[in-house]
């Protein structure tokens, strides 16, 4: 397994990650796929809500807020710029 993978909710605000694996199953997984979260999709962590959860991400040109429960099931590789 690739050790560089982190859950999406751990991606620091302002940085980019590349989706490598979804660990969700069933409907939750389908919803993620519908958002365009397939392998190799670039995602930017935009900002946290006042309490820190959910977090807003830019996914394929749209701004989507995800709770940590969902985001933790999306494993990304952080892009170091």
């Amino acid at each position: 397994m690739n050790n560089n993978l982190i859950p999406l909710d751990h991606l620091p605000v302002g940085s980019f990650g590349i989706v490598k694996k979804l660990t969700a199953e069933g409907t939750a997984r389908r919803r993620m796929l519908d958002l365009g979260l397939i392998d190799d999709t670039t995602v930017e962590s935009l900002r946290k809500s006042p309490v820190g959860d959910p977090i807003a991400y830019e996914i394929r040109g749209a701004v989507i807020a995800l709770r940590s429960e969902e985001a933790s099931k999306i494993l990304v590789e952080i892009i170091h710029s």
């Binding site: 919803r31 993620m32 959910p54 749209a62 701004v63 807020a65 709770r67 429960e69």
Partner: peptide
Amino acid sequence: LPSSFTLELPP
């Protein structure tokens, strides 16, 4: 349990 939450923040 809470269902999945995906909310679009439109422009």
